[in-house]
Design a protein around this nucleic acid. Structure first.
Lengths: 97, 97, 97, 97
DNA sequence: ACCGTGGTTAGCTTTC
DNA sequence: GAAAGCTAACCACGGT
């Protein structure tokens, strides 16, 4: 059995290559479409975000500063945790359990 | 009121935003929160997509090839051809068969 | 002049396509080789780093903890700066220059 | 002695490492610094690479195509063919011309 | 309209 | 062999 065929999963018999457009093809297409749908929704959300920024800009806010703030706010919690962790890391690194 | 105000990072005193920026500070915070909510939803969708790929992989599909396929389906046929042509031109320029 | 030709730079006359393997081809190849050489050196350094970790592991250190430490140490300076910056960002975001 | 100790991050007291881990602490610090030096050099090379691409771009080359080319040159011809074959198989499976 | 920057995603390497 | 972390390419946004 060739490598290529082996990479085409949904068949257990020797019909793989002929199965083009068949069951495995339908399954593949279905998966691709699910991904594509989700990506559309994701794009829609990205657009919503843009709208919020546009609105903000329209009322005088600094969009660039806002983006940086969003980023910092996201980092804040984990940052704090990491900071508190560092000495512990040194200890564990040198085997001071 | 909300925990949102309390989560305002640069603040040991939850009144600081209002004190500093007054109405604009409240408005800013509201905008940031709207963005953050949308970004959470976006992340959730990204996770869903990953799951689909994981499922595909679990049933034997080649995820890398699937990604290439998604990309091709999304790409304008015209543009695809152009890019390939440049690549071929460069190949022949350096004597790459 | 076709789009493809336009993307092949080192010719000012109508010899572009025929120049395959010519001056522009040599120039292109030279650039590619420079990149490839640099990438080799980069890979060599990556290997050196691996060796250090291997040595550390061999003398009983916790490599995973070391990696996290490296990461944290790198983040430390910028982190501090950002933290001090956040209120300023809020101010600029709301136009309190 | 060295400024390295002073740069030890989790420390308000530069003797803390030695106090905490003794000899192992000093050894650990030395290892971390070796790694950090190597990483700096690696970053410098990455910058050099960027410069080459910038230069290429400045003389009219298509950087994106160059990157694809570098990748192809690095890739085993065999593997390249295999991946393309899987892609073609998938295409025909979903009826993509 | 272009350039530069920043964010996101994919691929690779290494580890368990 | 799977999972995670790291790195690098791609893309999209904002500013000039």
């Amino acid at each position: 059995m060739s490598k290529n065929v082996a990479s085409f999963p949904a068949s257990n018999d020797e019909e793989e290559v002929k199965d083009t457009g068949g069951v495995a093809g339908k399954r593949l297409l279905s998966l691709l479409q699910r991904v594509e749908t989700l990506e559309q929704e994701k794009t829609a959300l990205a657009d919503d975000i843009k709208e919020v920024y546009a609105e903000a800009k329209g009322t005088g806010f600094d969009v660039k500063a806002m983006r940086r703030l969003i980023k910092l706010r996201k980092m804040e919690p984990e940052k704090r945790r990491e900071e508190d962790e560092i000495l512990e890391l040194y200890k564990s690194a040198i085997g001071m359990v």
